[in-house]
């Protein structure tokens, strides 16, 4: 199971621009390396990221092999209402990891 870290402010005022940060444990094997016996190591990466706020997509990302291992992302959104912010990563072969955090908007 991948280790995930999220940074979402627990509280915000309506209309505030807030920073969201996410980190996921994944080697992002580029497909361009060789093992100690010279064998090619196959590409094994997360290719998609999506963030939803109360069900609506607010940010998407698409990754190539040039994204560093243990992908880090920071982006922003406008705090609109109290709800759930969900972060979802999708592997090149379709496996999905997700985690979410609650925000209280006053």
């Amino acid at each position: 199971m991948a280790s995930i870290r999220l940074s979402v402010p627990s509280k915000a005022a309506s209309g505030d621009v807030i920073e969201l940060k996410a980190l996921i444990q994944y080697p992002m094997e580029s497909g361009y390396r060789r093992g100690s016996r010279g064998e090619a190591i196959a590409r094994d990466i997360i290719t998609k990221f999506e963030c939803t706020y109360d069900g609506e997509v607010i940010f998407k990302a698409s990754f190539g092999p040039g994204v560093a291992a243990n992908p880090f992302l920071s982006f922003h959104t406008v705090a609109t209402k109290t709800g759930t912010i969900t972060f979802k990563w999708t592997h090149q072969h379709g496996e999905v990891w997700s985690d979410s955090a609650e925000i209280i908007v006053t």
Partner: peptide
């Protein structure tokens, strides 16, 4: 937050 070592600490 961003120090990736914390993924292992967690």
């Amino acid at each position: 937050f961003a120090n990736p070592g914390f993924l292992w600490v967690d």
